[in-house]
Design a protein around this nucleic acid. Structure first.
Lengths: 255, 255
DNA sequence: GCACTCTGGCTTGTGTACAATGCGACCTGT
DNA sequence: ACAGGTCGCATTGTACACAAGCCAGAGTGC
């Protein structure tokens, strides 16, 4: 019914994502990665039993992983109706990007103050990996690593709540990029990442923030959020037919 | 062993918090409220079975509620060792407040643009409730309602990710206030809330942000974060004895 | 022929039993 | 008497079985 998930023996511990933690971490990482690489299209139903069989664990574990993914906004949990891969609307995407601008600005300023030599080293290493992935043509890994770069930057800012929020934002951004990115262009230029690291290492807050904002602009501009090609949101598709009377037509319910 | 939780029959649906949702919402709300009202002291162990018996539900439900509370940072989930009420350190409190400043500023600016008449009406009503609670001497409810005011403000800003983040920050802030607030002074002056609403209604962004920042200052100043009276963090208590060699002494482990 | 209803199957929600892990008490040897 | 180790209990982690809720298809009445 859905596209087939690659079967997986339960002892395949260290998956591609490499995170060796507990069982739900593995399940979480694999599903997340599958979504980013678009092996799981937005809207795809994520049956608990099917996933349990695939990963060789019970529904309990799957359920926890799905709950976590839902919390980060990449999966939508509909009561009594199961989980589906989230398909953020254009409006939701805009909100995520607005929030990210705010957070990235703050993170950059904090990172300029708090980033250690060790942090900077790791950041440079991550950009390397990112570049490698893109040169290998592994788009999914590239998107993921690019996200992890921004997450690592948040860690360098040394503020736990911001890190947690950034994790959620990066996840959603990755999903949005995977869904909306226009064609073939690399989505997150690692050059910009490198320049950013340089500015942070030089403790030049103004320059660093400047670069980060430009970076956000570039990400924005690579997406065609203005005119999405195809949508499963009927209200969006036929919005030109609907008279806009007030804004309380349908507060948040979609589909 | 712990202080006794007030027993609760299972059909006590609409609890004090009033949220009439599903079972885990009820459990969640009650535990959260108990923490805010300091009926559950920081560090208190939250046994799954005990809670299950109290609320008349199975551990499954309790587990979900605890997981949610852990996500919001008011409960600490230690693998294989159960859940305890979080006891944020001074450093953690500072991080939360820093993050809140950022977010509240952004929310205020957005609310000035997006708040509807309906939003403003509800906000005023919430300030009323808050004042009533304090005049009744119900400190726990006051703290909670004050938090809900800031959450409602986030909703008026019309940005889903920020709302979600604000929920987490407000929860943690409430816990910190309950834990650190110096004595008897009311912690969150509703007058300031009212002025804030006025500024937003007047669409005066500069003034609104100005008021909000002052409001944050006031909250900060009412807490004695600089010299906490007693701590259960041995490392903090004896920090003057420890030579600070590098930062890798104990990354995140506490207690 | 169309629409409405009822029923059957399948999926999720919840409770519970069993396994695994951590903690504390006791016991023993030095 | 104290340190170390071992055993047992208590609590969490996982799997599974049952209950409840949706959804689709067949059947029937208009």
């Amino acid at each position: 019914m859905n596209e087939q998930l690659q079967p997986l023996k339960k002892q395949t511990r260290a998956g591609k994502a490499g995170r060796s933690g507990t069982q739900d971490d593995i399940v979480y990482a694999h599903i997340f990665e599958a979504i980013l690489e678009q092996r799981l299209a937005p809207g795809t139903k994520l049956s608990e039993e099917a996933l349990g069989e695939i990963f060789g664990v019970s529904r309990t574990i799957i359920r926890r992983a799905l709950s976590r993914l839902a919390h980060e906004g990449v999966v939508l949990l509909r009561p009594n109706r199961g989980a589906v891969v989230a398909s953020p609307s254009v409006e939701e995407a805009r909100q995520v990007f607005l929030a990210r601008r705010l957070v990235e600005k703050a993170i950059t300023e904090l990172a300029v103050v708090h980033a250690t030599a060790e942090d900077l080293l790791q950041l440079r290493k991550m950009v390397q990996d990112e570049r490698d992935s893109f040169s290998r043509g592994d788009r999914g890994a590239g998107i993921r690593l690019s996200g992890e770069f921004h997450l690592k930057l948040a860690e360098a800012a040394k503020n736990a709540p911001l890190i947690s929020f950034q994790r959620s934002l990066v996840s959603q951004t990755s999903l949005i990029i995977a869904q909306y990115e226009s064609g073939n262009r690399s989505h997150c230029s690692y050059d910009e990442h490198m320049q950013l690291i340089d500015a942070i290492e030089a403790r030049d807050a103004t320059q660093a923030v400047h670069l980060m904002m430009h970076h956000m602009d570039h990400i924005d501009s690579k997406l065609n959020l203005d005119e999405e090609s195809a949508s499963d949101d009927l209200h969006a598709v036929f919005s030109h037919l609907l008279q806009t009377k007030g804004k309380s037509t349908r507060p948040s319910a979609k589909l």
